[in-house]
């Protein structure tokens, strides 16, 4: 019984922590939006936060952190390409 409870808590605790972290990061993103902050540095911060959130969902919620490097690399590459593309487009728009 204790073993089952230990197993359960080991599984639940990380995902609950991830969920709380995702909510906190969402709050920061919303705060930036509410204050209508802009500029390259702010946008890069928003994109880094978004990348971290994406990696958390992919790794902990979708379970990719326990998969081979190839599966993780595909997802990380997608996040980097999309996030990097958005960053480049933003910088182009500043000119």
């Amino acid at each position: 019984m204790n073993n089952i409870e230990n197993q359960r808590s080991r599984f639940i605790r990380p995902c609950t922590r991830v969920w709380i972290a995702l909510l906190v990061l969402t709050g920061i993103t919303y705060g930036i939006g509410r204050m209508e902050l802009g500029g390259a540095q702010i946008v890069m911060l928003v994109l880094v936060i978004t990348f971290i959130k994406g990696e958390m969902v992919a790794g902990f919620f979708m379970g990719l952190r326990k998969t081979s490097l190839l599966w993780r690399a595909i997802m990380a590459s997608w996040l980097v390409i999309v996030g990097g593309g958005i960053a480049i487009a933003y910088l182009v728009g500043l000119k």
Binding site: T26, T29, Y30, I32, G33, G38, V43, V46, L47, I49, T50, K53, G54, V57, A58, F61, M62, V82, G83, I86, Y90
Partner: peptide
């Protein structure tokens, strides 16, 4: 989770940046 992941990018892209 994929549906969630897509919104996580869509929200800052369209509403914040």
């Amino acid at each position: 989770h994929m549906v969630d992941l897509l919104w996580i990018i869509l929200f800052p892209l369209v509403y914040v940046i």
